[in-house]
Design a protein around this nucleic acid. Structure first.
Lengths: 346, 346
DNA sequence: CTGAAAGCGCTTACAG
DNA sequence: CTGAAAGCGCTTACAG
């Protein structure tokens, strides 16, 4: 804690009282000038706002929040941000939240044990809403939010807790899209490369993919575990896949970065032609997937829509509206590029 | 603004007063239990802390900040986060700041006009320090920080303002490393691909690179402008470079992602062998550069050290220490991989 | 439409 | 070592 003398060095800010005295008005009136819904004479408001900007006055959100019980802060909770899908999402979400006058408090947790502590710390700052991105929250953690009265919104994760709100791509539907695409191409020996097994994205994409294969009378795809949604995971998975009995004709990777790692290994270390020898499909639609050197066929997540929807949910929640628990699933779109092609049998 | 009824729905949190009454103590004493430097009987503190955790009480940082004039918030200000260098840095910085009980408020600005407004909004939350990452701040913006009494620390940018604090890689030194490497390899027809011309990283890397070439009696490198630090920028730069009179023997790209875009274009669209026909060097040391498919020779920024140093500076600043304006330049390291090799003349 | 007064949840001299 | 009191910068019933 800074000593008094040290603190004094920080310049004193202009306060509401300073402004009121300067204008010869009460603090009540001045305060009302900054609330668009308040009853105040337009001329008075104009004069106050004018003088405020001259003096460089802006209301102190901390003081305000003490009374309104609303901080205008939304906590964004993240664990794994190394997946290139997230920087884009984080930027969009933050920018969108800013545009409706909300501020983002970012929390990163490296492990699940750490996650609970970090969440508690975040909660102490009384965010109006907590947005969970790329993270798995324990049920105690969710309970802590409930106790604090802070609504939680899950992004790109289907919450285990049925009473929570969530926004995701239609991952099951996306898996179906991939199965259809691959089967239509004439492939029948399919494989799936899984990322983190405990994530809903992974589970749902597999679910859609494998169930569709069964529906269409194709043998159930073999499943390989990469262990994480990462380049290295994909690279390693390629090895175990090639050491397997008989390589598949087509591989659906649970996300793009996995697919890119897998393809690099397949091409470099096994001389596999993609497509030709093996077709590969990813999921996410990150910009890297569109680069000429990858030209990856993938399911593009409707990031724009997902963010817009999320921001709208957050806005309502911040206004104190009680929203019914639900998961919004927005359909993705199959983008056919150059890593899939007609199979040998066709 | 939420109506009263709506707001009432949020659960009332346990306050310091609740805890004090529960324990039959004064608020002063209870308050002291949460300040490690306060004078209080150990037994009293223990009892308070124990009951606090039972009741789920945590001090309200907003209320506290009103008195202490210190929020424990550090604002991180970012514009361009699409460069894969930043997600890693942002994660490290945030995690490090969390570990010393500081919270991160994230601000993204899409344009420079927007930047000033967003900074003002950020400042209204009274962050103890503002950390500027991947952004160019106007001098008015910096002035606004000074007026608010909020110290600013620049990360990976050398501030124009001489009174500011900054932490960067030794970019001039890095440029020299690259020049030496390429010249030692026997190359003499060199080129530089610039990212954003107005960034200090770009300027300094060029400065080191070009001045070293002159020193060693090599013709001054040709300079190509990619316009941004991006894959697309690198890809486009490759085109203009190849349409130029005579292609260079070696190319130094102002950062890794530029180099990767450039190489993809060179290989795919011109059938250029790298190395062999042309050597390429990047800057940053992002993980993508180490992938087998790129194996890019690059200057690795000492991210770990840069972050540690930055966090330490922020910590001191939060404690109210007045630090002398200075820019800490930490040397980078040349990582030789597979995109550079002995030139034709050697 | 405006103002006086109370109070949000804390911390900190000051007195004991 | 502890407590009573003032106050941080605001907002909001309530009264006029």
């Amino acid at each position: 804690m800074a000593t008094l003398t040290e603190r004094r060095q920080r310049k004193r800010r202009v306060t509401l009282l300073d402004l009121a005295e300067d204008l010869g008005l009460s603090t009540s009136t001045v305060s009302r000038a900054f609330d668009k819904d308040a009853v105040i004479a337009p001329a008075t408001r104009d004069a106050i706002l004018k003088r405020a900007s001259e003096l460089g006055y802006a209301p102190n959100p901390m003081a305000r929040s003490l009374i309104t019980k609303s901080t205008g802060i939304v906590g964004i909770f993240v664990t794994d941000i190394t997946n290139p899908f997230y920087p884009e999402v984080l930027t969009k979400l933050t920018a969108g939240l800013q545009s409706i006058d909300l501020k983002v408090m970012l929390t990163v947790a490296d492990s699940s044990e750490d996650a609970d502590d970090q969440l508690r710390l975040l909660l102490s700052y009384q965010p109006d809403v907590v947005l969970v991105l790329a993270a798995v929250l324990s049920s105690e953690a969710i309970e802590a939010c409930r106790n604090a009265g802070t609504p939680v919104v899950f992004f790109n994760r289907r919450p285990a807790d049925a009473r929570a709100l969530g926004v995701t791509c239609d991952n099951v539907g996306g898996g179906i899209l991939v199965a259809d695409h691959l089967i239509d191409l004439g492939h029948s020996k399919l494989a799936f490369v899984a990322g983190r097994a405990d994530t809903s994205t992974n589970i749902d994409r597999w679910e859609g993919f494998s169930s569709r294969c069964v529906e269409r009378g194709i043998p159930s795809p073999r499943k390989f575990d990469a262990g994480s949604f990462s380049y290295d995971g994909g690279y390693r998975a390629a090895h175990v896949l090639m050491n397997d009995q008989q390589p598949p004709e087509a591989i659906f990777c649970a996300n793009d970065i996995l697919a890119i790692g897998l393809m690099d290994c397949l091409r470099r270390e096994y001389g596999i032609a993609i497509p030709g020898d093996i077709s590969v499909v990813g999921f996410d639609g990150i910009s890297m997937a569109s680069w000429p050197s990858h030209a990856l066929t993938t399911v593009r997540q409707p990031v724009e829509k997902m963010c817009t929807f999320t921001i709208d949910v957050v806005r309502k929640l911040c206004q104190g509206k009680a929203l019914k628990p639900r998961i919004e699933r927005i359909p993705g779109e199959l983008i056919e590029r150059e890593t899939t092609t007609r199979g040998v049998k066709a």
